[in-house]
Amino acid sequence: MGSFREKNGKLEYRFSFKDPYGKVIRKSVTGYSEEECLGKYEAFMKSVASPVSEKSDGTTIPMLLKEVLNNDFNKNYIQESTYSLYLGILEIIESGSLKTTPITDVTGDSLEQFLMSLTDCYADSVIQKVHRHLKATMDTAVERKIIKSNPMNASDFRRPKSSKKTLDVKAFTKEEHKLFMTVLEEYKVPRGRNNYKKQILIEIYSGLRMGEINALTPECIDFKNNVIHVRSTISHGIENRAYVKDGAKTYEGSREVPISKKLKPILEQALEEMTDNQLGFIFYDNNKDDVISTKQVNNFFRRVVAKAGLPMRGQHALRHTFATRCIEAGVSAEVLRKWLGHKNIHITLDTYADVFNSLHNESIERFETRLKVKETLFEYVAA
């Protein structure tokens, strides 16, 4: 029970109660008599009693997650590329032990066991996404009063880490870069297959994402101002369908990237060889009468890498190679951020931390060389 006290000419009844999640809440009601205060107290307690029934209607985590995803997609809160990515996460959840278990029967232990089952199969980035969607779905179940509390919010619930080694997409070293360019130039494309050499050269000389390159139109190439206007990209949609997304990957992705002397003749040749297509793209798959996906170029890139005898890596290594050569040439992190279309400079610094760090010794040597020159001049003048 609570206690009474006088307050501003009225009686105040102060009491404590536990909410449905076990948290102790303190509250007070006021009236002109004890009977009035106790009446308000009883009415309040009746209003908060058993707000969550936890009566199972058979709803499972995958069912609720799919409903939320469909709702967000239909209301344009997420785009097709994001929706497709999230459906992939949904498939992972559906493939496990949580597929048929009603949410009311899901426990913290069962959630941890499911996440642990992923540690040998998926990278840590995937497990993070699965964990995030599971937590959000359980929170939704609480909001809808299907369950009283989310066990994933407990202080001792921790996401397990993947046991798979994280594979970094590394840039080409200077020696690898030279070898790759030689093999690319000499590589003979089989008859009837698409030639993606120019897209690869554009990426290595501009740092554009491959989806951005495949979405270029002649209007994007501004030789007057010597820049490429990046305004759209080829993205992955439902069932891995490649489609044109207006706007770049991020807000910062819409940008102007300078055209270097190495890049200009490649763009000029690409414009000359451009064929008519319904979308007006510089690069287009005439064999399929469709846009060119990043996967198509990546398969071509891998064949060239294998021909060169280089360690296998993804085509995104070309973008990292561009950035690495820029850093080695003294391009500042902020300028590089704008060229690459990174959201903030921290992404640039974190992604290429090793490259920036590797230049410290060279910078010290240049500094010491500069000091020696000054000392020599001073000594000569003094003499």
Results as ranks from 00 to 15, higher is better:
E272I: 13
M274V: 01
T275G: 01
D276R: 10
D276M: 02
N277G: 07
Q278C: 04
L279T: 01
L279D: 04
F281V: 06
F283A: 07
F283G: 03
Y284D: 01
D285T: 07
N286A: 05
K288A: 14
K288E: 13
D290S: 15
D290A: 12
V291S: 03
V291R: 05
I292M: 03
S293W: 02
K295V: 07
K295W: 09
V297Y: 02
V297F: 00
N298C: 02
N299H: 13
F300I: 00
F301M: 05
R302A: 01
V304Q: 12
V304E: 12
V304T: 06
V304N: 15
V305D: 07
V305W: 00
A306C: 06
A308F: 00
P311I: 05
M312E: 15
R313E: 10
R313C: 11
G314P: 00
G314E: 08
G314D: 08
Q315S: 15
Q315C: 15
Q315M: 15
H316F: 09
A317L: 04
A317V: 11
L318C: 14
R319V: 09
R319G: 05
T321D: 01
F322W: 06
F322M: 10
A323T: 06
A323C: 11
T324H: 09
T324M: 09
C326L: 03
E328R: 08
A329Y: 03
G330E: 09
V331D: 05
S332Y: 00
S332W: 01
S332C: 08
L340R: 00
N344F: 07
I345C: 12
H346C: 06
I347G: 00
T348V: 11
T348D: 03
D350M: 10
T351L: 02
Y352A: 03
D354M: 02
D354E: 13
F356G: 10
N357S: 10
L359R: 14
L359W: 08
E362R: 15
S363W: 07
E365D: 14
R366W: 09
E368S: 15
R370L: 10
L371G: 11
L371T: 13
V373S: 14
V373W: 02
K374F: 13
E375V: 11
